[in-house]
Amino acid sequence: MQYELRTQVIDPPRKTFDHLVKRYGDRPASRYEEGTIDIQAKENFHYRPLWDPEHEIYDEAFSAFRLTDPYSFTDPRQYYYAPYVTSRAAMADAVAATLDYLDSRDLLSRLPDAWSSVMGELLVPLRHYESGAQMVSCDIARFGFGTTITQCAAYAAFDRIGNAQALSRVGIALGGGTAELLGDAKTRWVEDASLQGLRRLVEELFLEKDWGKALVRLDVADRLVYSLFFAHLDDAAIDGGAGSYSLVAQHLSSWFADHRKWVDALYKAWVADPETGAANKGLLASSTAEALDAALEALRPVAARVDELVGAGAGASLESTATTIRETVAALTD
């Protein structure tokens, strides 16, 4: 016992790595900080990309949004891999528990037909929207500048695939344990008139080269989609006797609340930057406005279809979310 006590008093000559001491002073650093801050290479890149000779391997010029110090933004959730993956394992467990419950009570087959249609026609095809969101997030993870940002984007990309898979599992459950309904959902995603605006929006987003703008455009669409499907319809479903819709929606809704924490923090860092803040504000305001117009146009037919099926005031809800987005961005950029 004494031996151990004795050995524990060795005073470590260093508290952490040099780059963290420079930034935060001589104090022990957190695992998030050690695993994130300044990790991306900064200088002396050896070669230019063959696939984009105009840029360096990591290049601030990949976006018009700039931070004087990219590490002035940090993830409010402090996710490095271990806590991230632990939190997602718990989310996946929760989703699985819900699906098992729905399955064991045969609850999905007891849904009112209209709500069953909302799920099969509109909710399950969103797996493709999520898959598109994964691709956009991967671009941010590769071309973003600074590990605090790109790490969030990489985890978000993985989350989006997770969401796509969760929605697919709903589809499998809804299809009585087969993948048939997923095939229908894909056809709907590609062919149904109500979904074409949204699909077009995703496809056009693939061509956005500026990762900052892509992030804003995706976020605006996300806020409309999530607010409609996982907040507004969650309530409406309970009123409409479709409790199992709500059981599913809660998981995506809580994921989105977690996800938006870092996006919001990044917006705040953009506008607060002492040097680039003014330019970022202008960009954020204009990108949001453009993105909102496009996303509303894409989602109005979706909301209209929802209202046709269950008459839940989806259209009005969509417009009201848009107003909230306009107000929030105005408050941030005025």
Binding site: R48, L50, W51, D52, P53, E54
Partner: peptide
């Protein structure tokens, strides 16, 4: 020569 997208010419 290298395969590249666009001109690839650096000193």
């Amino acid at each position: 020569a290298v395969n590249s997208i666009g001109t690839y010419d650096f000193p």
